[in-house]
Lab assay of single mutants.
Amino acid sequence: MEVRTIKVFTTVDNINLHTQVVDMSMTYGQQFGPTYLDGADVTKIKPHNSHEGKTFYVLPNDDTLRVEAFEYYHTTDPSFLGRYMSALNHTKKWKYPQVNGLTSIKWADNNCYLATALLTLQQIELKFNPPALQDAYYRARAGEAANFCALILAYCNKTVGELGDVRETMSYLFQHANLDSCKRVLNVVCKTCGQQQTTLKGVEAVMYMGTLSYEQFKKGVQIPCTCGKQATKYLVQQESPFVMMSAPPAQYELKHGTFTCASEYTGNYQCGHYKHITSKETLYCIDGALLTKSSEYKGPITDVFYKENSYTTTIK
Rank of each mutant, 00 (worst) to 15 (best):
E2M: 14
V3N: 06
T5Y: 01
V8D: 01
V8Y: 02
V12T: 09
N16C: 12
L17I: 08
T19D: 14
V21S: 09
D23T: 15
M24Y: 06
S25N: 10
Q30M: 06
G33N: 00
T35I: 12
L37M: 13
L37V: 07
L37C: 14
D38F: 11
I45D: 15
K46Q: 05
H48T: 08
N49A: 09
E52C: 09
K54M: 10
T55P: 07
D62E: 14
D63V: 09
T64R: 14
L65F: 12
R66F: 10
A69V: 14
Y73N: 05
H74Y: 02
H74K: 06
P78V: 14
P78A: 14
F80R: 01
R83K: 09
Y84E: 02
A87P: 00
L88R: 01
T91H: 00
T91W: 04
K92H: 05
G101F: 00
S104Q: 04
S104W: 15
I105V: 00
W107I: 12
N110S: 02
C112K: 04
C112T: 10
Y113I: 03
A115K: 10
T116I: 05
T116H: 04
A117K: 05
L119E: 11
L119K: 02
L119C: 07
L119A: 08
T120I: 10
Q122P: 04
Q123T: 03
I124K: 03
I124V: 06
E125S: 04
K127A: 07
F128H: 01
Q134A: 09
R139E: 10
A140F: 01
A142G: 09
G143N: 00
G143A: 01
E144N: 13
A145M: 02
A146E: 03
L151M: 03
Y155M: 00
Y155F: 04
Y155D: 01
C156F: 02
K158Q: 05
T159L: 13
V160G: 02
E162H: 05
E162R: 03
E162V: 14
G164T: 00
E168W: 00
E168N: 11
E168Y: 03
M170N: 02
F174P: 00
A177Y: 03
C182T: 05
K183P: 06
L186T: 12
N187R: 13
N187Y: 07
N187K: 12
N187C: 15
K191Q: 14
T192V: 10
Q195Y: 10
Q197R: 14
T198F: 09
T199E: 15
A205R: 04
G210Q: 08
G210P: 05
G210A: 05
L212Q: 02
S213I: 06
F217I: 12
K218H: 07
V221Q: 06
P224A: 13
C225S: 02
T226Y: 04
C227Q: 06
Q230V: 13
A231M: 07
K233N: 13
L235K: 03
L235Y: 05
E239T: 12
E239R: 12
P241A: 11
V243Y: 04
M244L: 01
M245L: 09
S246W: 02
A247T: 09
P248M: 07
Y252L: 03
H256A: 07
G257P: 05
T260I: 10
C261T: 03
S263P: 04
S263N: 15
E264Q: 09
E264P: 04
Y265E: 06
Y265W: 08
T266K: 04
G267D: 13
N268P: 09
I277V: 15
T278E: 06
T278V: 10
S279C: 09
S279D: 12
E281M: 08
L283D: 07
Y284W: 13
Y284N: 13
C285P: 05
G288A: 12
A289W: 00
L290W: 10
S295N: 13
S295C: 13
E296F: 10
K298L: 11
G299Q: 01
P300M: 15
I301P: 05
T302K: 04
T302R: 06
V304G: 05
F305V: 10
K307E: 14
N309E: 14
T313G: 13
T313H: 14
